[in-house]
Design a protein around this nucleic acid. Structure first.
Length: 464
RNA sequence: GCUCCCAUCGUCUAGCGGCCUAGGACGUCGCCCUCUCACGGCGAAGACCGCGGGUUCGAAUCCCGCUGGGAGCGCCA
């Protein structure tokens, strides 16, 4: 048979029992990167053999997460549930070849025996009782794969190097449940083999499963793929990242106003590095990725760094694009983009002061308000009788000033301030509070130019 | 308990035997810029390279042991 498996085929195989989470997204990313780098194929396969916990909602959510991250796939989504007959044919094959057997033990019986093993210091595993049992009993049964009693199985891992396991460590794996459905370790092997997957890149929580999968490959006459096990992403307490550590769903990061490129960049840098470089475009990632530079130890998910990266990508986006991206955040809070305010200019002023789209939307709200509400404490501190007097005077000065551009405004106000023997410092904060309701905002002249004469005068009158 | 994986600043990491009195980035703290806040610029603190043995002229880098952490040990994936 011709060996024409030169272009790699990779896959991401989530189970739809939850949303696409951070760890899964990184696994998908690394598979995707390698596939794209080598002009290979990236397959999305849904591992939904657990009918109890799998839902369509999660399938859609996972796909939405990948689409948002722009991790596009070439084949799929393929559902394992559609391939049940296929798996069963292989169960039959193994049964006929004497490589598997029916097991009539109940869960309770096994549980008792395993507990006893654990108590005596042994690794709890199925004791193989039914291997020699009468196979024609009229009782419910599951089907087990006969493990090898001796020898060593070596996993040639692309990331961890060679890892060897004693075959005696492995027990007789259930490949078909009592209800007749095949199990994960069995289905993956068949799917990966039949879909001609060349590289299986997944979390290292699967490393212990790999030797038994290799044995399954061999038993069914398949050639094992290459494996690569990624270290886990950890929470701040260095345990495997979970809900306990806060948001883990990729889509939740979209809602928090993160940019897909930032998240991709961040995810890539947990576990993978390229010298001292921190910022990578997708193209660079595809070009520079290699298993060789994937680390072997787990990495903590550091949201502060994600925030920094997000800020970086945010300020490098053009204003019009950002406007499209931030609008949903504004609308969600009941704001309507008004043509009176040049939003792109407002965004230009705030984008380097915001780390997320959410923060950006917050920074834009004051432009859109009908009137400014000022916190009493701020009012007391900044809008003193003296300040109000100044603002009133300033209001008159501006009313007759027609050119509301930033430079013209600055010239006009500077002149007025200097004429009064004051410093900009003396009026900037009261003015800022009156116009924005906050002590924090973009530069006062830029902001006034964006806000427009009418609103500026209106807001000044409201406080004086 | 058993099996497997892992171990450099608080965090992500560079380092693949001499270039390391250990480099970069995030965060932190100063200073500069300045109308506030950011951005930006400059600078500082921060790792006896988990511990102990080897190998070697020489080890963060190789080997062994220990300790610590993680994962697995499901008729979940």
């Amino acid at each position: 048979m011709a060996q024409e498996t030169q272009t790699p085929r990779l896959r991401f195989a989530p189970s739809p029992t939850g949303h696409l989470h951070i760890g899964g997204a990184r696994t998908a990313l690394f598979n995707w990167l390698y596939a794209r780098q080598n002009k290979g194929t990236f397959v999305l396969r849904i591992e939904d053999t657990d009918r109890e916990r799998s839902t369509d909602e999660y399938v859609h959510s996972i796909m939405a997460g990948m689409e948002w991250l722009q991790l596009d796939w070439n084949e799929g989504p393929l559902h394992q549930i559609d391939r049940m007959d296929l798996y069963k044919s292989y169960v039959e094959k193994l049964l006929n070849e004497g490589k598997a057997y029916k097991c009539f033990c109940t869960a309770e019986e096994i549980d008792v025996r395993k507990k006893a093993m654990l108590a005596s210091g042994q690794k709890p595993k199925y004791d193989g009782l039914c291997r020699n049992a009468n196979q024609n009993q009229q009782k419910p049964f599951c089907i087990r794969f006969i493990s090898k009693p001796e020898g060593t199985t070596i996993v040639h891992d692309l990331i961890k190097g060679d890892v060897s396991f004693e075959n005696a460590e492995m027990d007789d794996l259930v490949i078909q449940r009592t209800d007749g459905t095949p199990t994960y370790n069995f289905c993956v092997v068949i799917d990966d083999a039949l879909m001609r997957i060349t590289h299986i890149i997944r979390g290292d929580d699967h490393l212990n499963n790999t030797p038994r999968q290799i044995l399954l490959y061999e038993a069914m006459g398949f050639t094992p793929a290459k494996f690569g096990h990624l270290p886990m992403i950890l929470g701040s307490d260095k345990t495997r990242l979970s809900k306990r550590h806060g948001a883990t769903s990729v889509l939740a990061y979209r809602e928090m106003g993160f940019l897909p490129d930032a998240l991709i960049n961040f995810l890539a840098r947990i576990g993978w590095s390229f010298g001292d470089q921190e910022i990578f475009s997708r193209e660079e990632l595809i070009e520079k990725f290699s298993f060789e530079n994937v680390g072997t130890s787990g990495g903590v998910f550091n949201q502060e760094k994600l925030l920094w990266l997000n800020a970086h990508y945010l300020k490098n986006l053009d204003d019009k694009t950002l406007q499209v991206m931030v609008t949903p955040f504004l609308e969600k809070d009941g704001f309507r983009i008004s043509p009176e305010i040049p939003m792109d200019k407002a965004i230009h002023l705030s984008k380097e002061r915001s780390r997320t789209l959410l923060e950006l939307s917050e920074a834009l709200k004051f432009y859109l308000h009908q009137s400014v509400t000022i916190d009493p404490a701020l009012k007391e501190k900044f809008l003193t009788p003296l300040a109000i007097e100044l603002l009133r005077e300033l209001s008159h000065q501006i009313e007759t000033h027609s050119d509301f551009s930033e430079t013209s405004l600055k010239a006009k106000i500077d002149e007025w301030i200097t004429g009064k023997g004051l410093k900009l410092k003396d009026v900037a904060q009261p003015l800022r509070v009156a116009l924005t309701g906050s002590t924090v905002s973009p530069g006062i002249f830029e902001l006034m130019a964006v806000l427009g004469k009418e609103k500026v005068i209106q807001r000044l009158k409201a406080v004086s």
